[in-house]
Write a protein that binds this DNA or RNA. Structure first.
Ligand SMILES: [Zn+2]
Ligand SMILES: [Zn+2]
Ligand SMILES: [Zn+2]
Ligand SMILES: [Zn+2]
Lengths: 129, 129
DNA sequence: AATTTAAATGTTATAATATAACACTATGTA
DNA sequence: TACATAGTGTTATATTATAACATTTAAATT
């Protein structure tokens, strides 16, 4: 089990507490009181946290969310649902889906080592509005 | 059938001819001889081309590729394979996959209107190197 | 054909996201 | 201790994307 460094811990904590995905510069703003002053300090921590699977990047939003499973086999297989109205993002944990995608092979015979899936739609709340 | 405007056509053509995904500022550089001088002219055309499904954005790469199917039901269901070594990107056209994903429902009962899937790995060429 | 409306264009400026380069510090381990 | 590896701090800069506004073109309606 990996021990987070000081900056990594600070930045993980703020993402983990956030109810929604956080953007890098919003993270930066929020950790300035803790002595983290430069974008690069944030991006370096983000890179590491993504690498070890503690957080995921929501690519379509350039934002980061704490892993809601158990560090997702170190981020090799991720799936999210994204509400296009309220921007709520939920990590999908569905073994049928992950099995299907992990075993998927395309015609070109390419073997995949990783995937990222983003579903878009309206969440329950936003549907009934 | 939608008729492309002048800028849309210029920008679609250059993406369509490219063997690899193109980034916005690389597109800009390449169309400056045709009178398109500003980023915004490129981004506006890209937005429209994505909207009508003529091109797709590869989110993990901030790059754009011409649709290799038939405008993908106006971009509602996209899947790509990406080689992490040579960066070759191929659009996946697999009816089993698209059926599976289009019918997927999560536990929260959210109904999805769109998805984007990116697989990562090594292409055949890069595997045998 | 003239009028109205919507879509697209041109332009300048600026916002938001991300990395390069370099000096230094902490931590683990031989 | 000596060495290697990972993390930090800092300044500067690169890359990606949008705001705002004036104008033009194309399409639809009268
Ligand atoms: Zn996860
Ligand atoms: Zn919602
Ligand atoms: Zn397509
Ligand atoms: Zn390759």
């Amino acid at each position: 089990m990996y021990t987070l460094s000081k900056n990594q811990q600070i930045i993980f904590d703020i993402i983990d507490k956030s109810p929604e995905p956080m953007k890098a510069y919003s993270i930066l703003f929020n950790v300035q009181k803790k002595g983290i002053k430069a974008p690069l300090q944030v991006y370096r921590a983000l890179d590491k946290l993504v690498e070890i699977g503690k957080i995921h990047k929501i690519e379509s939003r350039n934002a980061f969310i704490a892993c809601q499973n158990s560090s997702c086999q170190v981020s090799k297989a991720t799936a999210f649902s994204i509400c296009e109205s309220c921007e709520k993002v939920t990590e999908i944990n569905n073994s049928s889906l992950s099995k299907y995608l992990s075993n998927f092979k395309d015609k070109a015979g390419m073997k995949y080592s990783k995937y990222n899936l983003e579903f878009f739609g309206l969440c329950k709340k936003c549907t009934t509005k």
